[in-house]
């Protein structure tokens, strides 16, 4: 092998080794941190309104309220949503699946879904659900 070709092969090997190390570091980081999903509320609608997440891993939802009015993000099954339709709790902070996002603010919540299924996220402030503040969350 000529010296030039040998030098090129050496550089290629170093590059491949560096890339492998980088991939290993990044994959290690991502497995330690929760998946992050941003949901933007604009004109009283969720964007995106359909999300798919895996079960058994923590997922951080970053809910950005761009409206000058308060909103809610309450995720759960049909029974939970039905309870909230007649609920009287003015503000939600106690459970990670039920949060209030004041006007023009951002809230984060981290949830680990324990089993697959199809859930909904809804704002139960008066008339917000009727207006279209509904989203679907599929847990795989």
């Amino acid at each position: 092998m000529r010296p030039v070709a040998r030098r090129a092969a050496g550089l290629l090997a170093i590059a491949l080794l560096g890339a492998a190390v980088l991939v290993a570091v990044l994959s290690g980081t991502s497995s330690a941190s929760p998946m992050r999903i941003q949901i933007t509320i604009h004109y009283s609608h969720y964007d995106p309104s359909r999300i798919t997440v895996p079960h058994g891993v923590p997922v951080t939802f970053v809910v950005v309220n761009t409206d000058p009015i308060d909103h809610e993000w309450i995720v759960g099954d049909a029974a939970l949503q039905q309870r909230h339709r007649t609920g009287t709790e003015p503000v939600h902070n106690a459970r990670p699946t039920e949060i209030t996002i004041p006007a023009l603010t951002t809230r984060e919540t981290t949830i680990t879904f324990d089993k697959p299924g199809v859930l909904q996220y809804i704002c139960h402030l008066p008339r917000h659900e009727e207006y279209g503040m509904v989203g679907w969350l599929t847990v795989t």
Partner: peptide
Amino acid sequence: GGKEVGTWAKDHGFRLPPDAPEVLD
């Protein structure tokens, strides 16, 4: 703007309906 007027209304104790952000804009 819509956000400012909406915020003023909220700060003054009024509950705007869900279509208010779009209509104010």
